Amino acid sequence: MMDQVDQRYIGEKEEEVHKEMSFVDHLEELRWHIIRAVGSIVVFATAAFLAKGFVFHDIILGPSRPDFLSYRLLCRLGQQIGSSALCIDKLGFTIQSREMSGQLTMHIMASLIIGLACAFPYAFWEIWRFIRPGLYSQERKSSEGAVFFVSILFAMGLCFGYFLVAPISINFLAGYQVDPSITNQFDLSSYVSTLTTLCLACAFMFEMPVVVFFLTKAGLVTPEFMKLYRRHAIIVILVIAAIITPPDVISQMMVGLPLLLLYEVSIGVSSHIRKSDIKRLNKENTTNNGL
């Protein structure tokens, strides 16, 4: 039995030595992974640039019109509960471009942002392909499905920001007036910046469970630590929600509550990883003692 363990250990070491690469080789491999990741972003950005009408009219400017899906669903909800306050018939603002190159610049920037959002799963997969061989076999096993969960959480956060947070925030800002004589005429760059900030911020913040997973595996975070500083985390989450959303309570709560839920889910993820690691270590110690 001891000989078998020694042979397996030697075999793994020989495999690791065989797979060792020089620093320059690692840089070369990383360069090609980055090139392919950036290339995927450029491909999707080019497609978005060419589909100008659909991208701007249906996607980017969608939340600026009363016929947007989220507004129609809110109106149906209002009809079900007998309240007409949820029906949005008109958004009190207009969008304009006050710079000669403003529309072209925003066309390029919006295309790049959409390219990043669409290519994110593939780009992450490319980076993960570079990182994964450097992990131990147990770490590779425990991190299976990382690309899938990262992509799913990113898509969920992006949809949450686009269909829920952004429309309500835009509606609030559109209807806010300090005096009836002042009309809201938003610049195109301001509108696109607000929309993309809300959507991408939600998308990346939804990655909290995955980040906690890797921090727990690295021994930097424990479930006890997260439980101990739960109150501090709540304050931080509320501050983040206040920064990325307009200054209204509804938008802040719409972002803050899902983040608080994700924090609790992250505690569960950390606890599960901690228990799995303890169980594995106990099993290895039992095996070693038996040998």
Rank of each mutant, 00 (worst) to 15 (best):
M1V: 08
V5C: 09
E15T: 09
M21G: 10
V24A: 14
D25N: 11
D25Y: 08
H26N: 03
L27A: 11
E28C: 12
E28S: 10
R31W: 02
W32H: 06
I35R: 11
I35D: 06
G39V: 01
G39D: 04
G39F: 00
S40F: 04
S40E: 05
I41R: 11
V42R: 03
T46W: 11
A48L: 06
V55N: 06
I59W: 06
P63S: 02
S64W: 01
F68L: 00
L69K: 03
S70K: 06
L74H: 05
L77E: 14
G78V: 06
G78M: 05
G82A: 09
L86K: 10
I88C: 01
I88K: 12
L91E: 07
L91N: 00
M100S: 14
T105Y: 10
I108M: 12
S111F: 05
G115D: 07
G115V: 01
C118N: 05
F120R: 01
W128F: 10
R129I: 13
P133T: 00
G134V: 00
G134F: 03
L135E: 07
Y136S: 03
Q138V: 07
K141N: 13
S142M: 13
S143T: 15
E144N: 14
A146E: 06
A146I: 10
F148M: 15
F149H: 06
F149D: 03
V150L: 03
F154C: 05
M156E: 13
Y162A: 02
L164D: 02
L164A: 02
V165S: 01
I168V: 14
L173R: 02
D179W: 12
P180E: 12
P180L: 06
P180A: 05
S181D: 08
S189R: 05
S190W: 15
V192Y: 09
S193I: 07
T196G: 10
T197N: 12
L198S: 02
L198Q: 02
M205P: 07
P209H: 10
P209M: 01
V212C: 07
F213W: 08
T216G: 02
A218G: 15
T222G: 04
R231A: 07
I235A: 12
I235N: 05
V236K: 02
L238K: 01
V239T: 08
V239E: 10
I240H: 03
T245C: 04
T245R: 00
D248I: 05
V249F: 13
Q252M: 08
Q252A: 06
G256A: 15
P258C: 00
L259V: 03
L262C: 10
E264W: 08
I267S: 04
S271P: 11
I273C: 04
I278Y: 13
I278A: 09
I278L: 13
R280E: 14
R280Y: 03
L281R: 14
N282E: 14
N285L: 10
T287S: 09
N288Y: 09
L291N: 08
L291Y: 11
